[in-house]
């Protein structure tokens, strides 16, 4: 089966005085009807990648020059208009005309997607219904709440019934209720057969939504698999987060030497460890601390998840990476 999204060897370097390699050889494929998440900390290269996939940024040629982006078989580089007709893009920030109403925004964007006449009217009405704003269609966007703006922002991308939809961190800065609504909406889109490329730095979202997850760090994809398979990367390792009554650095070397500890890192004055079996390792950690006259003030045990995977792959926690 042909991929809905085919990305090969993307590179992008920004040169503003110094040189910043934002995307470094990214390749992946997304099957039709799949939700594919790009997970990574801020600055990992997710937005740059999605910008290149939206034809907003031109990829560099890279070392080999063999880069390509194909959407439903159409090359974004050689057939940009045909490829873009397959895509609906939900930008990270609200990209709407604040001084126009939701209805006027939707009509304008529908025209930009090439819709006309009855089809335009029908689709605008359907999208308004879908985002639950039919009653407030004539209100200006500036009068909407953050969540409502997000819904219109998503609605615009759905007007032309695209085969593929890109969602760039659509839940940033909104209330839990709106967030829940958006996540449910993404699942509904998948159920309608749409392919979704979703970027986020919230591992819970990636975990809940995604068929497959690509973890990005420093412009590279460091892992790309289903949630279950990614978890298997860390085996049965458990994440233990500890606080102590002195500088965290004091216990890094002693605990690193303990049997069963595979990774150790400091995050926000806490010490995070990946261990094989928490039941066996925890007593050793307490003993070592006692020997150094250090008191453990809090303990948190977490079963393996994407956070654990990121810690395992990079040695850093996802949130502070």
């Amino acid at each position: 089966m042909e991929s809905a999204i085919f990305v090969q060897n993307l590179h992008k370097t920004f040169r503003n005085g110094s040189s910043l390699k934002a995307v470094d050889g990214v390749s992946f494929e997304v099957a039709p009807g799949e939700i594919f998440s790009l997970l990574g900390p801020n600055g990992a290269g997710k937005t740059t990648t999605i910008s290149m996939l939206s034809a907003l940024l031109k990829p560099d040629n890279g070392a080999t020059g063999a880069n390509d982006i194909r959407i439903m078989g159409r090359s974004l580089i050689t057939e940009p208009l045909a490829a873009k007709a397959m895509i609906g893009v939900v930008p990270q920030d609200i990209a709407l005309y604040q001084d126009l109403s939701a209805l006027e925004n939707l009509i304008f964007w529908a025209k930009m997607y090439g819709l006309k006449g009855t089809l335009l009217k029908t689709r605008v009405a359907e999208v308004l219904d879908l985002i639950g704003l039919t009653d407030r269609a004539n209100d200006r966007i500036s009068k909407y709440s953050g969540g409502m703006k997000r819904r219109v922002n998503i609605g615009v991308a759905l007007l032309h019934q695209p085969k593929v939809i890109y969602m760039d961190e659509p839940t940033v800065g909104i209330d839990p209720q709106s967030r829940r609504s958006i996540l449910d909406g993404v699942i509904a889109l998948k159920n309608q057969g749409m392919t979704v490329l979703y970027t986020t730095h919230y591992m819970e979202e990636a975990q809940e939504l995604s068929d497959r997850i690509a973890i990005m760090d420093h412009g590279k994809i460091i892992a790309n698999d289903s949630h279950e398979n990614l978890i298997r990367l860390v085996g049965q390792k458990t994440r233990i987060s500890l606080s102590i009554n002195t500088e965290p650095e004091t216990m890094i070397e002693p605990w690193k030497a303990c049997k069963g500890v595979s990774t150790i890192a400091i995050e926000e004055s806490k010490i995070n460890l990946l261990v094989d079996d928490s039941n066996k390792v925890l007593p050793r950690l307490f003993e070592t601390a006692a020997a150094k006259d250090v008191r453990i003030t809090s303990v948190e045990i977490q079963e393996p998840n994407l956070e654990t995977v990121f810690l395992h792959l990079t040695g850093r926690a996802l949130r502070d990476a």
């Binding site: 939206s54 907003l56 208009l81 893009v89 990209a95 930009m112």
Partner: peptide
């Protein structure tokens, strides 16, 4: 700056 120009560029419009 408001992002609407970029959004236009993502539509099938030259």
């Amino acid at each position: 700056e408001e992002g609407t120009l970029q959004r236009m560029f993502t539509t099938p419009t030259a």
